[in-house]
């Protein structure tokens, strides 16, 4: 096991969340759940983050922002979509301004369903993401690509 999975730093971005899922994400940091036990830190800075937590669906205003934040994270990195909105757009998917789930814009590695997603499942999701993070790192080293291919501007993931 590398150090990566022992020190996952998080970037949390509120796309078009109703704030329900955000509150749950923050609840994970409280003494009740205390994710810092696992070395998880909420950094608030893509350049320091390994895991990208998104809540809410993507709308037309912030699709560029989501992509930009993703690009600014150093590899290896994983994306976790929190809540049903982030997964598929949820109840808002038909809205005129909503583009859909996060995977419309960037590749998502873990989907955490729920409305709102419970802290336990969020933590579960992150732990699952750690495995993927490890895998991506091995790929990064063995592929010797050093750098993962970037998303093309306007391109759609997977």
């Amino acid at each position: 096991m590398s150090y990566l999975s022992r020190s996952p730093w998080i970037l949390h971005y509120d796309a078009t969340s109703c704030n329900g899922c955000d509150i749950e994400v923050l609840a994970c940091l409280t003494p009740m759940y205390d994710v810092e036990r696992f070395g998880i830190i909420n950094t608030g800075n893509p350049k320091h983050a390994d895991i990208f937590l998104l809540t809410g669906s993507v709308n037309e205003q912030n699709r560029e922002v989501v992509r930009n934040l993703y690009d600014q994270m150093p590899n290896p990195k994983v994306v976790v979509a929190i809540g049903i909105c982030a997964t598929s757009g949820g109840v808002f998917r038909e809205c005129y301004n909503v583009a859909g789930g996060i995977d419309k814009i960037i590749p998502v590695d873990v989907y955490v369903p729920g409305c709102a997603a419970r802290p336990e499942s969020i933590i579960d999701g992150i732990v699952m993401a750690l495995g993927i993070l490890e895998r991506k790192r091995t790929e990064m080293i063995s592929g010797d690509k050093g750098v993962q291919p970037e998303l093309q501007q306007g391109g759609k993931a997977q």
Binding site: K47, V65, Q72, G146, V147
Partner: peptide
Amino acid sequence: RRKHRQLKPYMGGMT
């Protein structure tokens, strides 16, 4: 040095 990638300055996610 190893290959590195250049990132734009962080502007709160703004492009």
